[in-house]
Design a protein around this nucleic acid. Structure first.
Length: 475
DNA sequence: TACTTCGGCGCC
DNA sequence: AAAGGGCGCCGAAGTA
């Protein structure tokens, strides 16, 4: 493939070189792991996986399969799972896969089928993922009790980093059970503790440096405002005070970020609707029931010939269709009222690329390959947001070395740094981190027009990464 | 045996 | 007018 991005400015060239050195220090420092724990967890998981397998194979559908085919259904062979569900059981697939247009059997599609044993199949896959991807790779890659993940700067079109052997950037955390199993294996050096420093809302803030939308900047500057909470309230027809952390999580990951990355109402409504099945509001009422009680003004499609016209009407949100019309209205408000300048910037930015044939990142890289509309808008944000973290990694690493601290950086996850900290050095490290990642970065890069805020999570001395908890930072 | 592709799934 | 950005690793299945 053609070179997509080039460092066109001296500073960008410098950033790549110094970044590569800092990342190689980080690789070389290494991540301590508890391999004995991994062995135990591996065995335990295997027991649970085999029990689930036995349970599933005892189901009538599976026994019938065995009778007809002469052998057990292989749970890991998606073609067989699809044949069972969509041919033999006559269910309708929720969607088709990519080029081959096979009937999809991913967890999201399966959950829409309302088959009693599907959650057990999904759990079987999830435990298998934990064992065969994460525990296996830790055991395989550990050398004398340490991992040395390889951080690369030359593989990604946006000039983000990538990581392999093992990939330290996708260790489970969202599923609490799996997060605990895997992150319990990541431990500090004896007598030390694991510290994680995150930029909060890095991509949102860097995007604001491009589009300068006043509504977005108000959200960023005013700590009492929260765009994810407000958007979740719009999607689920709730006042902000009834948006709890689960509802907010769905608003953020099923609506706000997909909209930023270029998705649109029909697709977004689908995942919101799926999430709504599991959400509860204040009194324990199911979100679906709450939505069904709502009457909202929406535009309803009226097919006329080969075109669709939209007419105003009032509907209950009692099914995926009326809900998608409602989300279409929420989207109009999102781009038209909340963030109109951002919306305008996207159009102008895309026009600029079509005219010139390239776009320039704030950090001095030029993207000049063939890009689609979404690529064109997302690449400069994704790249520059990571470059903030990369510059911070360089500066903090230099500071630790120059001041001869024993604390080391052991990993980097796009907008966060993971450190193995000597407790006596903790306060100094925190102070240096807040300074270099915040005001000093802005001094270097005046294009950053909003504060870059850092959050810190700390695990107790001698405890694993899983036990990290947020700590307060002096402002 | 070695390699590639695909679907699936973990993270930001 | 089009319609979710970026990664790496797994197992299964196909190909050389």
């Amino acid at each position: 493939m053609d070179m997509v991005v080039k460092p066109t400015q001296e500073t960008a060239y410098e950033l790549l070189h110094r970044g590569a050195i800092a990342l190689s220090d980080i690789s070389s420092n290494g991540v301590r792991v508890d391999t004995e724990y991994c062995e135990r967890a591996f065995t335990e998981l295997t027991g649970e996986i085999e029990d689930l397998e036995d349970e599933l194979h005892a189901l009538p559908e599976m026994k019938e399969w065995r009778r007809v085919k002469g052998r057990k259904l292989d749970l890991g062979t998606n073609d067989q799972v699809a044949e069972l569900l969509y041919d033999r059981m006559g269910l309708d697939p929720a969607r088709k896969t990519g080029l081959a247009q096979k009937r999809a059997v991913d967890a999201d599609s399966l959950m829409q089928l309302d088959v009693e044993w599907i959650p057990r199949l999904i759990r079987w896959r999830r435990l298998g993922k934990a064992r065969d991807t994460y525990l296996s790779s830790i055991l395989r890659e550990a050398v004398d009790g340490y991992l040395h993940p390889l951080f690369k700067l030359h593989t990604v079109p946006t000039f983000r980093s990538s990581c392999s052997n093992p990939n330290f950037q996708n260790m489970p955390i969202r599923n609490p059970e799996i997060g605990r199993i895997i992150r319990s294996a990541i431990i500090p050096r004896p007598g030390r503790q694991i510290l994680e420093l995150d930029y909060s809302g890095a991509e949102v803030r860097v995007a604001a440096c491009y589009h300068k939308d006043p509504g977005m900047i108000r959200y960023i500057l005013d700590p009492s405002k929260d765009m994810h909470r407000d958007s979740a309230g719009d999607c689920y027809v709730l006042p902000p005070e009834l948006v709890d952390k689960h509802i907010r999580f769905s608003g953020k990951n099923d609506f706000v970020f997909p909209e930023f990355y270029g998705s649109y109402w029909a697709n977004v409504a689908q995942s919101l609707w799926t999430s709504s099945a599991k959400l509860e509001i204040r009194d324990g009422e199911n979100m679906r029931d709450h939505l069904a009680r709502q009457r909202v003004r929406v535009q309803i499609p009226r097919p006329r010939g080969d075109r669709t016209s939209w007419e105003w009407g009032t509907v209950h949100l009692d099914g995926p269709e009326p809900f998608s019309w409602h989300i279409r209205m929420v989207e109009k408000k999102f781009w038209g009222e909340r963030f109109p300048v951002y919306a305008r910037w996207k159009e102008d930015w895309w026009d600029g690329y079509l005219k010139r044939g390239y776009i320039d990142m704030k950090t001095g890289f030029r993207c000049s390959s063939v890009m689609g509309r979404n690529d064109c808008i997302n690449y400069p944000v994704q790249g520059a947001a990571f470059h903030c973290l990369l510059q911070s990694a360089i500066d903090l690493n230099d500071w630790l070395l120059y001041n001869k601290l024993d604390t080391v950086i052991i990993g980097q996850i796009h907008d966060s740094l993971v450190l193995d900290v000597v407790p006596a050095e903790l306060d100094d490290v925190l102070e240096a981190a807040v300074r270099t990642m915040g005001p000093e970065l802005r001094e270097k890069w005046p294009w950053i027009i909003v504060p870059m805020e850092v959050e810190a999570d700390l695990a107790p001395v001698d405890r694993s990464w899983h036990e990290k908890k947020e700590i307060k930072l002096a402002a």
